[in-house]
Design a protein around this nucleic acid. Structure first.
Length: 505
DNA sequence: ATGTGC
């Protein structure tokens, strides 16, 4: 074995090319595993100047990190652990890290299909965007669709979309087309602080701010007719995308446990290269409490997206004068971006029983892992039992939102995802410019005028600053991100959409 | 992302 691998160096970090679009930071020093970056040359150049690679390498110091820490094609610098990072840690001798989940627990995205076509909507764009904006709460702070009392919050945290079904905000079909059927059974509301619950009670059914949005889109391209058919997607069809998370409640859960872990597991913290990676050892009280609280916040976020779905259906009913059923407004799928989940994976091992990349494995064994996906989407292929029955023969839908000027993709979980990324792919386009830089570069109203006049995209937001921060130019090229995912076989292209109306905080 | 900080 005397091949000379192609290498690159970015800011003192050496990357070795494994194959097309796969780069490795070899294991060295205190690293517990290597790290891998899945990216094209163009995407690599965009993370060369920030801390993404450093943070990815730091993540390999987490105890029990299995095979390698991976960075998806849309990766960028985050809090401690990169956004776009996937880290699988052993549930027996590993750890769980709130920083590797993210502040916005179960930030995620869902797509609702309709039977409307672009022709049905043309001329109604302004009415639709105004009505959505008036009816779907958005922006910082409180005010949701449901004003939850203490019992409501408990029920939402405990039962997720089952609560929404009982209360008439969801249909049984909605649950059948959501990841985990909209309920994480490991939720333990008693481990969510009163402060977190208080922050969440008047935010049930609200978009929030930042990159969160509701967008009406049209399907412009279908790449895989067969899978698109299974997903109920056709060219020219109107769909709705909802992107938001667990608001102040999830944020507070993250804050609470980061503090508690720093206090109680200072010894582990000392061994880690970055304090923001704070982790609770597997099996510890705090690991179990954080996991239960995080799962409860996951349920909260699903209900949040469900309440917005409910309201969106009512808006469409008024604007298009037909029942949501008649309009075919079914939930296509709902994916989580920021979570850690116990999953069993078949892990490649070497002769010593150490987890190694699948191409170096002499054997495989099943291990239970906390799969941390932070700004990464589960992308299970056909056959995995966790994929809802409706899609088990096809693979799970993966929804990748691009910027408000670029549109989005629907992918299907790829056959390679289990072997390469613990069943994961990208979650979006990924920022290339900071929020502060964006506000110096763009003016909200100008961005809105250009989108409307040049691309017939109608944007309405609470704040012009938010539009500037989210201008199309602050994002990577979503086409390039998806090209890499598709080429690696971790998430395969099914369809592409383009924006019609967008509301945001 | 976030009642946008210690």
């Amino acid at each position: 074995m005397t091949e000379t691998a192609e290498t690159r160096e970015y800011d003192g970090i050496e990357l070795r090319k494994v194959r097309e679009f796969v780069w490795e930071i070899p294991q060295a020093g205190e690293m517990n595993a290597p790290a891998r970056v899945l990216a094209s040359d163009a995407l690599l150049e965009q993370i060369a100047d920030d801390k993404t690679l450093q943070q990815l390498r730091n993540a390999t110091h987490l105890p029990g990190i299995t095979t390698y820490a991976a960075c998806m094609p849309d990766g960028h610098q985050g809090y401690g652990f990169p956004v776009g990072g996937v880290g699988a840690t052993d549930t027996t001798d590993g750890c769980i890290s709130p920083g590797a989940v993210g502040y916005d627990i179960n930030c995620g995205v869902r797509m609702i299909r309709t039977d409307l076509t672009y022709d049905d909507i043309r001329g109604h764009e302004e009415e639709l965007v105004e009505s959505l904006f008036a009816n779907v709460p958005s922006g910082l702070g409180g005010g949701g669709i449901v004003d939850g009392d203490a019992d409501t919050v408990e029920a939402v945290l405990e039962r997720g979309m089952e609560w929404a079904l009982e209360e008439g905000y969801a249909t049984a079909d909605d649950l059948a087309h959501c990841e985990d059927e909209g309920r994480r059974p490991d939720a333990r509301p008693e481990f969510v602080s009163q402060k977190a619950k208080d922050r969440g009670r008047n935010q049930l059914g609200s978009l929030g701010s930042g990159n969160h949005f509701l967008e009406v889109q049209r399907v412009t391209d279908v790449f895989d007719e067969g899978v698109a058919d299974s997903f109920g997607l056709t060219e020219d069809q109107i769909v709705v995308l909802i992107h938001c998370g667990s608001r102040g409640l999830g944020h507070q859960v993250c804050t609470d446990y980061l503090r508690a872990i720093e206090k109680r597991h200072g010894d582990l913290l000392e061994q880690l290269p970055d304090k923001e990676l704070a982790a609770a050892p597997a099996g510890s009280e705090l690991a179990d409490e954080y996991y239960g609280a995080m799962c409860a916040a996951i349920n909260f976020a699903w209900v949040n997206r469900q309440l917005i779905t409910h309201r969106t259906r009512r808006v469409f009913e008024r604007v298009f004068r037909a029942d949501a059923d008649e309009l075919g407004m079914e939930l296509l799928y709902d994916v989580a971006h920021n979570i850690a989940k116990r999953e069993v994976h078949e892990v490649g091992i070497d002769a010593d029983g150490t987890a190694v990349p699948t191409e170096d494995a002499v054997d495989h064994e099943e291990r239970e892992l906390y799969v941390h996906r932070k700004g990464a989407t589960r992308a299970f292929p056909a056959g995995r039992e966790e994929v809802p029955a409706a899609y088990r023969d096809v693979g799970q839908p993966v929804i990748i939102p691009g910027s408000m000027g670029a549109g989005s993709y629907v992918l299907v979980g790829g056959d390679e995802s289990l072997a390469q990324t613990f069943g994961s792919t990208a979650h979006g386009a990924g920022r290339v410019m900071s929020r502060t830089a964006a506000k110096q570069e763009y003016w909200g109203e100008t961005v809105q005028d250009e989108l409307r006049d040049q691309d017939h995209i109608y944007v309405k937001a609470q704040s012009g600053a938010t539009v500037a921060e989210e201008a199309p130019g602050v994002y990577k090229d979503v086409d390039e991100v998806v090209r890499v995912s598709d080429a690696l076989g971790i998430g395969d292209k099914v369809a592409r959409t383009f924006p019609v109306c967008n509301i945001k905080g």
